[in-house]
Amino acid sequence: MFDELMRAGWPALEEVAVDGWVARFSGGVTQRANSVMPLCAPHDLDHALRHVERLYAERGLPVVFQLDRSDLDRVLDVRGYEFGLPTLIQTAHTDTVLAALGTHDADIAEAPGTDWLDLWWAVDGRGDADALAIAAKILTGGPALYATIRDEHGPAAVGRLALVGDWGGVYCLAVRPDARRSGLGGAVLSGLLAAGLDHGVTRSWLQVRQENATARRLYQRAGYVDAARYHYRSRRS
């Protein structure tokens, strides 16, 4: 279930089906949008591996798999794929989060404005203007809501809620460095989910790096609980 939710919530610009796997390509911008999602076991594992390795090599990208602990994980380990970025998937009901965080006002839009993009990219972005343009295409590849909280200096915190049926995917939560430790992360999250209610969002998921203790404390306080986990295996093609 979460594979398909994440696939819809953060859509790659190009997908290629490979015998039960989905190889995703987005110009190298973000690992999620440039990784193989193994939905089921291929009929011929060696052939599938050679195929995806060739696809990534043709695009000048490292081969990256997003997966949980599985037989494939062990195979990739033996083949020299490096383990990285262990990540938790957490879920919560919308009413639980709003009860925990309270109601906060945020400017809500259905597309990311320039100031929203600039703050998010300044905090979390990796790359130049071309990479930001690709990231903007990923963001707008499916329906979503974009929250911004401003102060006297301009945008102070932003976030994105992907709309996937009655689920909302929390992405791109970013707070300007000088505005941190003032509760703005929780305020953006609350504002997003309050707006999501009007779109039928009754529950949400998010992904958080296992080592990100600060974010995990916020999400625990908001009522999120662990539901699954994944990591990446990668090597240069």
Results as ranks from 00 to 15, higher is better:
6 M>I: 14
9 G>T: 02
11 P>T: 00
13 L>Q: 14
19 D>A: 08
20 G>V: 00
20 G>R: 00
21 W>G: 07
22 V>M: 10
23 A>F: 01
25 F>V: 09
25 F>T: 06
26 S>L: 03
28 G>M: 06
29 V>G: 01
30 T>L: 11
34 N>M: 12
35 S>W: 04
36 V>Y: 00
40 C>H: 13
42 P>H: 04
48 A>C: 05
51 H>G: 03
57 A>E: 13
58 E>Q: 15
60 G>A: 03
63 V>M: 14
66 Q>E: 13
67 L>M: 11
67 L>N: 07
69 R>D: 14
71 D>C: 01
73 D>F: 01
75 V>H: 06
76 L>I: 10
80 G>P: 03
84 G>T: 08
85 L>G: 02
86 P>C: 00
88 L>G: 01
91 T>A: 14
91 T>I: 15
93 H>G: 15
97 V>R: 07
98 L>R: 03
103 T>I: 11
108 I>Y: 05
110 E>I: 11
114 T>V: 13
117 L>M: 14
119 L>H: 07
121 W>D: 01
125 G>R: 06
127 G>T: 08
129 A>E: 14
132 L>I: 07
136 A>Y: 00
140 T>L: 08
142 G>V: 09
149 I>V: 06
150 R>S: 07
150 R>D: 04
158 V>E: 02
165 G>V: 01
167 W>F: 14
169 G>A: 10
172 C>A: 14
172 C>T: 11
179 A>V: 06
179 A>L: 04
180 R>Y: 01
180 R>H: 02
185 G>K: 01
191 G>I: 05
201 V>C: 01
205 W>E: 01
207 Q>N: 08
207 Q>V: 05
208 V>A: 11
209 R>A: 15
213 A>W: 01
216 R>G: 10
217 R>T: 11
218 L>N: 06
220 Q>L: 11
221 R>G: 07
221 R>D: 10
222 A>Q: 09
222 A>Y: 09
223 G>A: 07
224 Y>P: 07
224 Y>H: 11
225 V>D: 11
233 R>S: 10
235 R>H: 09
236 R>K: 11
237 S>R: 13
